[in-house]
């Protein structure tokens, strides 16, 4: 049981590869960090893994099955800017419960308060919104979580408390975790191993 990436390559224009020959394997419960310069395609890789975009080369295999295009994706991505991941016209409770209704204990683990539920996204801070987007990604069928610069826009205290909450759940459910960050310190503290995406860059 693992999230396996074989010889992945991506380009926007033919033969102008952003990265190529990327192979990663994240076992269930494993934590891998992906590190790299700005512009080396970290976010693009994250989007391919979560099947937001298709790779130009190679394949993504989730628990022995090829990545599917339709239906619920067992690999869920947490974005850098939570305010873009919420429908601005929906109340928070609607965004949160779009795909499943999380348990109270999960909300408590991330310190989500009841009074936030009735608010609209613009009425919450980035840190508060990010808590919602993480809980939303922690669907019961989610097997792997990709955190793409998840706390880059947040202050240190919020960052630490969000990671604390996420890591507890990841441990409890034995989820695979990919941490994408430009901050080596975070990857050092969290991950078992680390991959430098720059080594695969052809720019």
């Amino acid at each position: 049981m693992s999230l396996k990436v074989n010889n992945l390559g991506f380009c926007y224009r033919p033969e102008s590869w952003v990265f190529r020959n990327v192979s990663i394997e994240v076992p269930k419960g494993g934590r891998i960090g992906i590190y790299g310069n700005s512009g080396c395609g970290k976010t693009t890789l994250a989007k391919i893994l979560a099947s937001f975009i298709s790779p130009k080369e190679g394949e993504v295999v989730v628990d022995g099955e090829n990545q599917k295009r339709e239906g619920f994706q067992p690999v869920q991505l947490i974005f850098q800017h939570p305010e873009k991941t919420m429908n601005p016209l929906w109340r928070m409770k609607d965004s949160l419960c779009e795909s499943y209704v999380p348990e109270k204990s999960l909300l408590d683990a991330f310190g989500i308060r009841d009074e936030w539920m009735e608010r609209y996204p613009i009425e919450l801070s980035g840190g508060e919104l990010q808590r919602f987007s993480i809980v939303r990604a922690l669907h019961p069928e989610t097997k792997y979580i990709i955190a793409d610069e998840m706390t880059t826009m947040l202050d240190a205290i919020t960052q630490a408390s969000i990671w604390k909450g996420l890591l507890e759940i990841v441990k409890e459910r034995n989820l695979g975790l990919i941490v994408i960050s430009h901050e080596m310190a975070i990857i050092d503290k969290i991950c078992d191993s680390c991959l430098n995406l720059e080594d695969y860059c052809h720019a």
Partner: peptide, 16 residues
């Protein structure tokens, strides 16, 4: 002090 200690370079999650 909290802001300083909760940095990933320092105590990180243990500071919370």
């Amino acid at each position: 002090r909290m802001l300083w200690k909760s940095l990933p370079e320092h105590s990180f999650m243990e500071a919370i």
